[in-house]
Design a protein around this nucleic acid. Sequence first.
DNA 1: TATTGTTATACTCTATAACTATA
DNA 2: TATAGTTATAGAGTATAACAATA
Lengths: 142, 142
Amino acid sequence: MTRTARAESTQALNAELIELLFGVLDKLRGHFDAAAAETGLTGGRARAIASLSGPTPMRQLAATMACDPSNITGVVDDLERRGLVTREADPRDRRIKLLVLTKQGERTRRDFLARLHRTPPGISELTEPQRRALRDLLTLAV
Amino acid sequence: MTRTARAESTQALNAELIELLFGVLDKLRGHFDAAAAETGLTGGRARAIASLSGPTPMRQLAATMACDPSNITGVVDDLERRGLVTREADPRDRRIKLLVLTKQGERTRRDFLARLHRTPPGISELTEPQRRALRDLLTLAV
DNA sequence: TATTGTTATACTCTATAACTATA
DNA sequence: TATAGTTATAGAGTATAACAATA
């Protein structure tokens, strides 16, 4: 195989993988949004709730969600209005507001995650050994 | 292993896979948008250009992009203004407008796809046999 | 009547810049 | 001065509904 031919087939394989990954992304995204909707949340709110595993500064939530901190205010306003989270002062630095899930917020989070992890499309079509093989490959990739 | 324990570990594996897939997809999305920006396009415009492999009714482009047809008008307006596509009448059904890439549009498309397929993050970290294994697993999943 | 594309409109997610209160 | 959070605003992507031209 010439160097050019190998480069071509490598790019063809890359192209195929990118297509496949975007295909999986579309299905997974639909599943995520459906699980959110069933829990009474938009995708973004669900993402925020899922990220709150303990008291979390707003700045840190922005970092976890990979978005600008200015976007977090509105999300938290909404979640607070619905009684799912509270803003609490950090005793050691009063600039910081710690986000804490309420009891109802905890329930909503568990409910959402249970729906998310049950029968995800794409993944559910694989046997358990195949899932482990996929996990191992993706771990190398990330 | 009890039924409950197996269900738990299956869900844990699902959760891990979902995390990994969203991680890979975030990187891939960044790579896609970067390739688009280097070609002078937004992600959405690049997606449209990439979908035009031949004369395409606007309705069909909407279907390929999995969005409402009303969104296509603005995208095509922009691409036409930049001299990358033209709207041509379908001689067999004058309701239909066929989207056709100009010479410059063809160049832009090739340029974008070349950038997209070169060193995609996540995929590039895998050996060729690993890429083939990943492709086979994803083919089963989609 | 049904379909293609267009327009008007609205909602979500995202970012930048200027502001406040704390440090 | 620098940092955490807020506000105002703007640019993308997405959807629905009503419309004109054509089938």
